[in-house]
Write a protein that binds this DNA or RNA. Sequence first.
DNA 1: TGGGTCGGTGGACGACATCGACCGGAGAAT
DNA 2: ATTCTCCGGTCGATGTCGTCCACCGACCCA
Lengths: 146, 146
Amino acid sequence: MDDIDRRIVGLLLDDADRTYAQLGREVALSPAAVHERVRRLRASGVVRRSTVEVDPDALGLDVLAFVLLDTEGWARDHVFAAAGADPRVEEAHSVAGNSNFLLKVRAAGPDGLEEVLRMLYQVPGVVRTRTIMVLRRGFERGVSLP
Amino acid sequence: MDDIDRRIVGLLLDDADRTYAQLGREVALSPAAVHERVRRLRASGVVRRSTVEVDPDALGLDVLAFVLLDTEGWARDHVFAAAGADPRVEEAHSVAGNSNFLLKVRAAGPDGLEEVLRMLYQVPGVVRTRTIMVLRRGFERGVSLP
DNA sequence: TGGGTCGGTGGACGACATCGACCGGAGAAT
DNA sequence: ATTCTCCGGTCGATGTCGTCCACCGACCCA
């Protein structure tokens, strides 16, 4: 994980369609050398997978909300399992503060969000939810390098 | 944007390295037909770009937090602009509830997070922040189709 | 000094993306 | 009802690119 690796990761984060020849030109290496570095970045788990960034609205996913979850007792494993099983929950974190968990939920309409909330109340230990509705998305980008 | 398009998007979300031949087999279409559909999905903005999912820890980004932002007056444009200029802010949303904005911040160590907070207080209108620190990431996946 | 290892180069090969020519079916207009 | 048109598909050709292999130089340590 040297500086060249970090530059390669940064370039791939920006656009994973770059060819090895292009990457090689940008980091002053042969295509084969870049190929080998990327292979190792993937093998070591630094690069997990390549995916595609989509417009949620185009898929009808027009509701975005963050849900704070309050629980009683140790509920982490149940919460993560239940949340992970619903594709509408994009993220789940255990957090510090007044609540125990924070989920990011994206759904097609308010009904979808409500279904997620109902599902969450089935989870043993969950006693309260507080939903922060997103009015307007400023931006959503993934990890990006400085 | 028919059902086949949705299936293609779902497959690309899962793994964008699939060849057109593979995609074609999965949706019962020729490689060329899939190629044309993907070209149009990109042109129409449904698919924005292809990127790579990385392990934040491998890049030293070990701090994740959500920051609730309280403002006075109309501060949206300033907030989004300032937040967008800092690569440590991965998301920024205008939200309903007790606070006006919700940011997702990922940094290398607590110092990076504090720098982001200091930067935010420079933004005209910002009067308070509340930071929700993530103790443990359950999962972070992007949009996924049911 | 000399062998071993690691990471790089260059070239060859086959797979794949990409394009063009052709084709068939659904609608619209006559 | 028939013909025209257009959209979206298949098929096949071509050039680029990913991928592998053999070789090489630098560096480390005995």
